[in-house]
Design a protein around this nucleic acid. Structure first.
Length: 430
DNA sequence: TCTGGGGTCCTAGGACCC
DNA sequence: TCTGGGGTCCTAGGACCC
């Protein structure tokens, strides 16, 4: 017996999101191939349809693609997260205006749940939603609908790939479902990555339909409960629900590959301090405090013979979100893991044991250890840096502008929507 | 010369306890 | 020929996602 379906999932996905964001302010690039690069202009992380058609692969290092990009006149952009983050918020706001059950799943995706109700036309409703996003923000979206999130992901692929559906595809009660699953490689199923796909292929499971019909015990054994859930979801048994309120993060990471390798201790220490400051700011934004700090330094995975990587975790005396306290802890880690004589390429800070402020357990000796009253100071710091930019007030920095660890972003577009000095200018012709 | 960043979840294995 | 058993907690590593 089948359960009565009471609601369905819709997955809203922005098409080629970063590329679409860049094009929004450069309409002359519509129809032209463009790509967006990772931090430090290292890899290609987003491509317009035209760039995909030229065979530019996802994740390819820029230096390997330079010839191809130049040959076809592909427009190349450094990543501009201030812009993408802001446009993402605008898209999500439009969704929330129409629909209260929204789970923001990533910067460019959201799941919705919709009631199943014979008296209204789901497709017309979603077409309206899609049109509003296009009109109010200017970003094209695709929508896939199904009875589980995993199937909604597959429906979304169809919506995006096949122009006849005009960006919206519904798998609910669709007699073509198995045909579509048969045409979907198992590695393209949400939750099945490269490793699992290889494993499944060895058992002759090559398509999403094969996985749907596979032996549940085998899948449980080979892919753990995660794979078992995917199999159920392909069979229209929902195992993954909508998460409306984003939970408090369990960890906060700030890590960067340096613009140039660092060999001296002063620059390395400065980079660490700067990353801790950013992580602390993220922590305060969550109104939370952290218990542990982990610092790592590395020469990077591509380095020759003299490679080095080390990390250390410190448990803080008490949960904190204070920048100076976290810097002090990070510098203690730094002291013990730093080794001279290497060309460092990357450093990172991870905060864990995160609890919402006020939810921390009382320390037995808390009355004996007065908490430093720097909350007001941190609030002021965040306010100033929020208004004038992250580098307005910083801890322990020299004033040097050319920091070797600063990111390389030679091809960055302006912060059109988040910086008064970089607003787009409208020219009138009289 | 040049290869991103930020997350989550699951499992196995070791330490420790009674 | 012989080594208890069962539980919890923590960590490292693997796999996945965008």
């Amino acid at each position: 017996m089948f359960p009565v379906i009471k609601k369905v999932f819709a997955l809203v996905d922005c098409n080629n999101f970063y590329a679409s964001c860049e094009r929004l302010f450069r309409p002359e690039l519509n129809g032209k191939p463009i790509v967006v690069l990772s931090n430090n202009d290292g890899c290609i992380i987003a491509r317009s349809n035209e760039a995909k058609a030229l065979g530019v692969p996802m994740g390819a290092p820029l230096f390997k693609m330079k010839y191809l990009l130049a040959k076809h006149g592909v427009h190349v952009f450094s990543s501009n997260y201030a812009l993408y983050g802001d446009l993402s918020h605008r898209v999500m706001d439009v969704l929330r205006q129409m629909e209260c059950n929204v789970e923001v799943y990533s910067i460019d995706e959201a799941f919705l749940t919709l009631p199943v109700n014979k008296s209204w036309n789901r497709l017309a409703y979603l077409a309206e939603l899609r049109e509003r996003v296009r009109k109010q923000v200017g970003i094209p979206i695709s929508i896939g609908i199904a009875t589980t999130k995993t199937l909604a992901k597959i429906a979304n692929r169809v919506a995006k790939k096949d122009p006849q559906y005009q960006g919206i595809f519904d798998l609910v009660g669709n007699s073509q479902t198995d045909q579509i699953l048969q045409k979907t490689e198992v590695g393209d199923v949400w939750g099945i990555g490269r490793r699992s796909a290889e494993k499944l292929n060895r058992y002759g499971i090559r398509t999403a339909l094969d996985l749907k019909q596979a032996d549940a015990a085998l899948i449980r054994k080979q892919l753990t409960v995660v794979g078992a859930r995917t199999l159920l979801e392909l069979n229209e048994i929902p195992c993954i629900s909508l998460e409306k309120a984003p939970p408090c993060p369990k960890s906060i990471v700030t890590s960067r590959t340096f613009g140039h390798p660092i060999t001296d201790i002063e620059n390395l220490r400065e980079a660490v301090i700067s990353y801790v400051s950013i992580a602390a700011e993220k922590l305060r934004k969550q109104e939370a405090e952290a218990d542990n700090l982990n610092l790592y330094l590395t020469t990077g995975p591509f380095d020759e013979q003299s490679s080095f990587a080390n990390n250390q975790t410190i448990t803080l005396p008490r949960p904190t979100s204070s920048t100076p306290d976290l810097i002090a802890a990070a510098l203690r880690c730094f002291q013990s893991i730093y080794r001279p004589g290497y060309r460092y390429r990357k450093a990172g800070v991870m905060l864990t044991g995160i609890v919402k402020q006020g939810y921390k357990p009382q320390d037995l000796f808390s009355s004996l250890t007065p908490v430093k009253e720097d909350k007001l100071l941190m609030a002021a710091l965040d306010k100033i840096n929020g208004k004038w930019g992250r580098r307005t007030i910083q801890y322990g920095m020299t004033t040097a502008e050319d920091r070797p660890w600063s990111m390389q972003q030679a091809l960055k577009s302006p912060a059109y929507t988040t910086n008064w000095h970089e607003l787009p200018v409208v020219k009138t012709v009289s």
